Simulated assay, not measured.
Amino acid sequence: MIRVQSDAFDPGEEISHLARAGDTGAIATFVGLVRDEGGTLFALTLEHYPGMTERALSVLEAEARGRWSLSDVRIVHRVGRMMPGEIIVFVGVAARHRVEAFAACEFLIDRLKTDAPFWKFEEGNEGGRWVDAHQTDDARADRWRR
Results as ranks from 00 to 15, higher is better:
16 S>F: 07
20 R>N: 11
115 D>A: 12
7 D>E: 15
6 S>F: 01
29 T>V: 09
44 L>T: 13
60 L>S: 10
76 V>M: 01
4 V>N: 02
103 A>S: 05
33 L>V: 11
119 W>E: 04
3 R>S: 09
37 E>N: 11
102 F>W: 01
100 E>M: 13
53 T>P: 08
39 G>L: 06
77 H>K: 08
60 L>C: 09
130 W>R: 02
62 A>Y: 12
122 E>M: 08
70 L>I: 04
63 E>S: 15
56 A>C: 13
121 F>Y: 11
87 I>K: 02
51 G>I: 01
49 Y>K: 04
72 D>N: 09
128 G>D: 05
69 S>T: 15
78 R>N: 03
74 R>E: 11
31 V>D: 04
29 T>D: 07
114 T>H: 00
63 E>M: 13
42 F>M: 00
142 D>N: 08
55 R>N: 15
52 M>K: 03
113 K>G: 10
135 Q>D: 08
143 R>N: 05
127 G>V: 12
142 D>E: 13
72 D>L: 03
17 H>T: 13
23 D>A: 15
39 G>T: 09
134 H>C: 09
144 W>Q: 00
118 F>P: 02
124 G>T: 07
40 T>G: 06
61 E>A: 05
70 L>Q: 08
134 H>D: 09
125 N>A: 15
76 V>T: 09
49 Y>Q: 05
47 E>D: 12
37 E>P: 08
141 A>R: 00
141 A>C: 07
114 T>F: 01
114 T>G: 01
20 R>L: 11
54 E>H: 09
81 R>A: 08
136 T>C: 01
53 T>Y: 15
70 L>K: 05
24 T>L: 04
25 G>P: 10
50 P>Q: 14
96 R>W: 13
28 A>F: 00
